[in-house]
Simulated assay, not measured.
Amino acid sequence: MNKSELVRVIAAETGVRPQDVDSVLTGFVTRVEEVVRGGGSVKVTGFGVFRARDTEPRAGRNPRTGEAIPIPASRRLAFKPSKKLTDRL
């Protein structure tokens, strides 16, 4: 499901105009990005937690040549689903 499909489904289920649903969804994504980029986390009760994780530099391997290559440290977005969501799946 892509964003426009999600907006259509939510609009149909809630009776809210699709433009308003799109605006709220875009605002949610923007705020999550800002908070996580700033080092915080966003917890949506019953759904999960969005946060950034730092990875350590490590050695990798080029699958084509087998040559060892360095993989630098980085920050990754992490999502940990809530137990409630996990149990429903």
Rank of each mutant, 00 (worst) to 15 (best):
M1V: 04
M1F: 02
N2Q: 11
N2A: 10
K3Y: 10
S4M: 15
S4Q: 14
E5V: 10
L6R: 05
V7C: 07
V7Q: 05
R8W: 14
R8A: 14
I10K: 06
I10T: 07
A11M: 11
A11C: 09
A12I: 09
E13M: 15
T14G: 09
G15F: 09
Q19H: 13
Q19L: 12
Q19D: 11
D22G: 10
S23T: 12
V24C: 04
V24T: 04
F28L: 15
F28K: 11
F28P: 11
F28D: 11
T30R: 08
R31A: 11
V32M: 10
V32S: 09
V32Y: 09
E34F: 12
V35C: 04
V35N: 04
R37D: 14
S41I: 07
V42D: 03
V44G: 11
T45G: 13
T45M: 14
G46H: 11
R51Q: 06
R51P: 02
R51T: 03
A52G: 03
D54Q: 11
T55C: 02
E56F: 12
E56G: 13
E56L: 15
P57N: 06
R58K: 04
R58H: 04
A59V: 14
G60L: 08
R61C: 15
N62W: 03
P63V: 10
P63M: 10
R64F: 10
T65M: 09
G66C: 08
I69H: 04
I71V: 15
I71P: 15
A73M: 09
L77W: 00
A78V: 00
A78M: 00
F79D: 01
P81I: 05
K83Y: 05
L85H: 01
T86G: 08
R88P: 05
R88W: 03
L89N: 07
L89R: 06
